[in-house]
Design a protein around this nucleic acid. Structure first.
Lengths: 150, 150
DNA sequence: GTTTATGCAAATTCTTTGCAATACT
DNA sequence: AGTATTGCAAAGAATTTGCATAAAC
């Protein structure tokens, strides 16, 4: 698992533009979201930051990020919710990207955003007003596929 | 909320073909799934059958139905899982429909299956193997739309 | 200085497990 | 009769709330 360095500037700027105070917990958690390309649950964060921050603080951090449009919920067939960064240019407190495509690998369990794929448009029955589309694809991701073939 | 009568035959037949014993709890819960056209959570069932059946029994009923392919999980952005009947012709213990389209109304909160809509095919990045597709559409359903306009 | 976030404790809610009694086939 | 299901109790997770302290702006 690669852990690329994320410029501190980027992190503080993101918090600032989303009207969030710069606290240690938020800086650390936002950094993780920027590093990892896949969706994270509260329990993922808890594993990483058990020593540093309280469970409750992390729940509240996720809630703040969600409220301010910094992250979005990722659909999942498991019980617990997962979250991922919104494409930074698209979401703020007031506007939100309305289409998300995610791929969940059933081998490694990771769910990643496929920003490059658009949800094809479709025709709804009469009278339905569409606001948001979320497509969850499940299968085997490229890197697990390679391991299978070895 | 209309509650159409479901033929007892249908219910017992469905349980039989899915290798499930005919118990009161299963008969009642399956009847509800057949009546309502939208997805139900454990807590929905609990509200309906608090008096008749134990909470735990209903958890286990859902699990049995799921294992035998009578119902499937419906994706949702809330915490708790919801379930809906599989189109009776498509799913059994061994085979499962791999594409589901659901519409969640943000006004009434109900999630219903849109069997008539197919998930459009799309191209995945190289190396990805696709097994299942779930599309969750959110917006306002036809009947809530009508109420808005009044 | 004012407002907001944190940590801890505790309360709720959600879900699972074990086991004896009961019901299904 | 033999096997699977139920109800109850209790354990274990997941999530939320209240409040005093501490940190951010």
């Amino acid at each position: 698992m690669k852990t690329e360095k994320v410029a501190q500037n980027t992190i503080t700027a993101l918090l600032a533009t989303h009207q969030l105070r710069q606290t240690d917990c938020r800086l650390d958690i936002l950094e993780v979201f920027l590093q990892k390309k896949f969706a994270l649950s509260h329990s993922d964060l808890e594993k990483m930051f058990k020593e540093s921050y309280d469970r409750v603080t992390m729940y509240r951090t996720l809630k703040s990020f969600l409220d301010k449009g910094l992250i979005h919920k990722v659909l999942d067939d498991e019980g617990t919710p997962k979250y991922a960064l919104c494409s930074t240019t698209q979401c703020t407190t007031h506007t939100h990207a309305h289409e998300h495509v995610h791929f969940k690998c059933e081998t490694c369990g990771q769910t990643s955003c496929l920003d490059e794929i658009k949800v094809p448009s479709l025709v709804l029955p009469k009278g339905f007003q569409l606001k948001e589309m979320n497509l969850l694809l499940q299968g085997i991701c490229a890197s697990c596929q390679i391991n299978c073939e070895l």
